[in-house]
Deep mutational scan, measured.
Amino acid sequence: TEELDSELELPAGWEKIEDPVYGIYYVDHINRKTQYENPVLEAKRKKQLE
């Protein structure tokens, strides 16, 4: 659920942004990119696909 997503600790260099226009998204300051999917959940999903 969304509530559990926010409890996950983000990897180093990541920041969660709550924007009133664009909603919640994540900033990867190391690689200078943004995405809507939580990077922790993304990594778990990719691992399940292997």
Score class of each variant (00 low, 15 high):
residue 25 Y to L: 02
residue 50 E to G: 06
residue 28 D to C: 00
residue 26 Y to P: 04
residue 12 A to G: 12
residue 16 K to N: 00
residue 36 Y to V: 11
residue 2 E to Y: 04
residue 4 L to T: 13
residue 24 I to A: 05
residue 35 Q to R: 05
residue 47 K to D: 09
residue 35 Q to M: 09
residue 37 E to M: 06
residue 45 R to K: 14
residue 24 I to Y: 02
residue 19 D to E: 01
residue 8 L to K: 15
residue 22 Y to N: 08
residue 21 V to D: 06
residue 2 E to H: 02
residue 19 D to Q: 01
residue 16 K to G: 02
residue 18 E to G: 03
residue 22 Y to M: 05
residue 33 K to M: 07
residue 45 R to S: 12
residue 45 R to L: 06
residue 32 R to W: 03
residue 45 R to G: 11
residue 50 E to H: 01
residue 23 G to T: 00
residue 16 K to V: 06
residue 17 I to S: 03
residue 44 K to I: 04
residue 31 N to Y: 01
residue 7 E to L: 12
residue 16 K to A: 03
residue 25 Y to M: 13
residue 40 V to Y: 07
residue 29 H to L: 09
residue 10 L to S: 04
residue 14 W to M: 01
residue 43 A to N: 13
residue 23 G to M: 00
residue 11 P to G: 06
residue 30 I to T: 07
residue 39 P to R: 01
residue 7 E to W: 09
residue 11 P to L: 05
residue 27 V to G: 05
residue 44 K to F: 09
residue 36 Y to I: 09
residue 2 E to M: 07
residue 42 E to I: 10
residue 29 H to M: 04
residue 3 E to P: 01
residue 48 Q to Y: 10
residue 48 Q to V: 10
residue 44 K to R: 12
residue 9 E to D: 13
residue 30 I to D: 03
residue 26 Y to T: 03
residue 2 E to P: 06
residue 37 E to P: 02
residue 46 K to D: 14
residue 44 K to S: 11
residue 4 L to S: 13
residue 36 Y to F: 06
residue 12 A to Y: 04
residue 45 R to V: 09
residue 6 S to R: 15
residue 25 Y to G: 06
residue 38 N to Q: 04
residue 19 D to T: 04
residue 1 T to D: 00
residue 7 E to Q: 04
residue 25 Y to F: 10
residue 7 E to N: 08
residue 31 N to C: 10
residue 20 P to M: 06
residue 48 Q to E: 15
residue 40 V to D: 08
residue 46 K to A: 12
residue 2 E to W: 15
residue 30 I to Y: 11
residue 1 T to C: 05
residue 28 D to H: 01
residue 15 E to Y: 03
residue 14 W to C: 05
residue 6 S to I: 09
residue 28 D to G: 00
residue 14 W to G: 03
residue 36 Y to N: 09
residue 9 E to A: 15
residue 48 Q to H: 11
residue 4 L to Y: 03
residue 13 G to V: 01
residue 23 G to D: 00
residue 7 E to K: 15
residue 30 I to E: 11
residue 27 V to W: 07
residue 28 D to S: 01
residue 10 L to N: 02
residue 47 K to E: 07
residue 12 A to Q: 07
residue 27 V to C: 12
residue 17 I to H: 07
residue 26 Y to A: 06
residue 36 Y to D: 06
residue 38 N to K: 03
residue 34 T to S: 11
residue 36 Y to T: 12
residue 48 Q to N: 15
residue 31 N to W: 00
residue 28 D to F: 00
residue 44 K to P: 06
residue 33 K to D: 12
residue 8 L to R: 11
residue 28 D to N: 06
residue 48 Q to F: 05
residue 46 K to H: 15
residue 14 W to N: 14
residue 17 I to Q: 00
residue 19 D to A: 02
residue 12 A to L: 13
residue 23 G to K: 01
residue 24 I to D: 04
residue 30 I to H: 12
residue 34 T to R: 13
residue 44 K to A: 11
residue 50 E to A: 14
residue 40 V to Q: 04
residue 21 V to I: 13
residue 34 T to G: 03
residue 21 V to L: 14
residue 45 R to Y: 06
residue 43 A to L: 13
residue 37 E to Q: 09
residue 7 E to C: 15
residue 14 W to S: 03
residue 47 K to V: 14
residue 46 K to Q: 13
residue 33 K to A: 12
residue 11 P to D: 04
residue 33 K to V: 13
residue 1 T to I: 05
residue 43 A to C: 07
residue 43 A to H: 09
residue 31 N to K: 07
residue 6 S to L: 12
residue 24 I to E: 15
residue 29 H to Q: 03
residue 23 G to W: 01
residue 34 T to E: 06
residue 4 L to K: 14
residue 1 T to R: 15
residue 28 D to Y: 00
residue 40 V to F: 04
residue 9 E to N: 04
residue 21 V to C: 13
residue 6 S to K: 10
residue 5 D to L: 13
residue 10 L to K: 01
residue 40 V to A: 15
residue 18 E to F: 07
residue 45 R to I: 02
residue 1 T to K: 03
residue 16 K to C: 07
residue 39 P to E: 03
residue 41 L to Y: 13
residue 3 E to F: 15
residue 48 Q to T: 09
residue 41 L to F: 15
residue 10 L to D: 01
residue 22 Y to W: 09
residue 43 A to D: 14
residue 30 I to V: 12
residue 30 I to M: 06
residue 41 L to I: 05
residue 23 G to R: 02
residue 19 D to W: 00
